[in-house]
Design a protein around this nucleic acid. Structure first.
Lengths: 245, 245
DNA sequence: AAGTGGTCTAGACCACTGT
DNA sequence: CAGTGGTCTAGACCACTTT
């Protein structure tokens, strides 16, 4: 490691350090899994304070190039998994195509009152019931996606009786003869709050991608409002689009 | 302002402060444009160090809830503009639909050698020429999108002669009878490097959304490789999808 | 017990903004 | 000029992991 820091130029020290490692990693000179020097080692070797080192590493973490493990150290991340957020197949299918050792864990499953927000989104009455499902997707036993599903109970009676470690859409198709067809929603960047940090096993304020959408059946009826939280350090988000409307 | 900080609990101080302001802003109790207390004021009032205040504000900035202006202070951001990254119309049309006072500035315009990467993406020869266009999109005189376009010169001879303060796709349609039809690519989170920070007038390491895609004509020929960098604090990214493949 | 990253403090100097 | 955020230092203590 031979970083030559320019302490008098206009480029911040932390940025020079960050870029040094970023280029090393992107050029595959530091391979996935490799441990970086510890914060204190870097601080000593480069003669900068630990705060400055931490600021440099923070940028690498946010881009998903590195990850920190408390008590262990800093490591170069694995390559990202391509995931097609646009395609309307269920997450189960998407993950099966590109990742191995996937697992789905049901975190919560219950019937709730619709309330105003979800009644609007699903075009149902405020007093209607909603089937609520919170699931966590794992790849190699690492939690990577958080999924919140809301479905109108009147469309899917007794939905709560099924096992949701498998595809939700598969159940909708096989048991209710309902086929997801269109989706309308948005995505954006959020920072991990307590809930996401806990369930995805991340530090607070880790950047995440959130996608929220209403799913429509072939008849144009809203059948689901879904919110998904993706770890940006794990995925490349694919988009295939076509002029259709 | 009456924040009650729990200095002994397990929730970090910076996070308590961040969440206090986040809730205030999301509940519209702090309106866009409002100035927050300065870092030093907050530090004094809350009896925490300035470093801790800065860490709290950092999370709000990353989510686009606040912005900092050096020499001025910290301000609550305006609401985000919805932008459909998926739809295949040009950025010009997208922005016209939802924002006012938009402006496009050509930053670079030249013919370059294809090289391996772009030759592959556009399915042309390494020795072919490429028309390269770098543009910056403004809303209310604020730079919000950075666009890099690469088009095969042999498909669009003399393209460099046109004025690109208007829609690129309009020129392709009107002058070359070529219609963009499909797109294939990905998006992800990046942190602002020197180039993005300079051109978008942001601090280093501001989180940004990057979208890269190859655009195909109705005949299935690659006509453009495009890379766009969006300010996440300015946009909500819309997605409309349909099962088509 | 030793080492890791996570949090936090109390300072300091800089470049930029407004008056 | 005074005030702002941006950068940086040299410490300290904590919870967690490994030996």
């Amino acid at each position: 490691m031979n970083i030559s820091l320019n302490k008098n130029g206009h480029i911040p020290l932390y940025f020079q350090i960050q870029e040094y490692f970023r280029k090393k990693i992107e050029n595959n000179l530091l391979k996935p899994g490799t441990q970086l020097p510890t914060e204190r080692e870097l601080s000593n070797k480069l003669n900068v304070s630990r705060v400055t080192i931490r600021k440099a590493i923070r940028g690498l973490i946010a881009e998903g190039l590195c990850e920190k493990k408390v008590g262990k150290g800093i490591f170069v991340s694995d390559e990202k998994i391509p995931i097609n957020v646009h395609k309307l197949e269920g997450t189960t299918n998407i993950l099966q195509a590109s990742a191995d050792k996937i697992k789905t864990v049901v975190n919560e499953k219950k019937i709730i009152q619709a309330k105003k927000k979800y009644a609007n989104l699903l075009n149902i009455d405020i007093n209607d019931k909603i089937f609520y499902l919170k699931r966590i997707r794992y790849i190699k036993d690492i939690p990577v996606i958080l999924e919140y599903a809301h479905l109108p109970s009147k469309l899917f009676p007794e939905l709560e009786k099924y096992d949701f470690n498998q595809s939700l859409y598969k159940i909708l198709k096989e048991k209710y003869n309902t086929y997801p067809d269109k989706s309308r929603g948005f995505f954006n960047l959020i920072m991990a709050k307590e809930e996401e940090a806990k369930l995805l096993n991340l530090q607070l304020n880790t950047p995440l991608l959130i996608k929220a959408a209403t799913i429509y059946s072939q008849e144009g009826i809203p059948i689901e409002y879904t919110k998904s939280v993706y770890r940006t350090d794990q995925f490349n988000f694919l988009v295939n689009s076509k002029i259709i409307e």
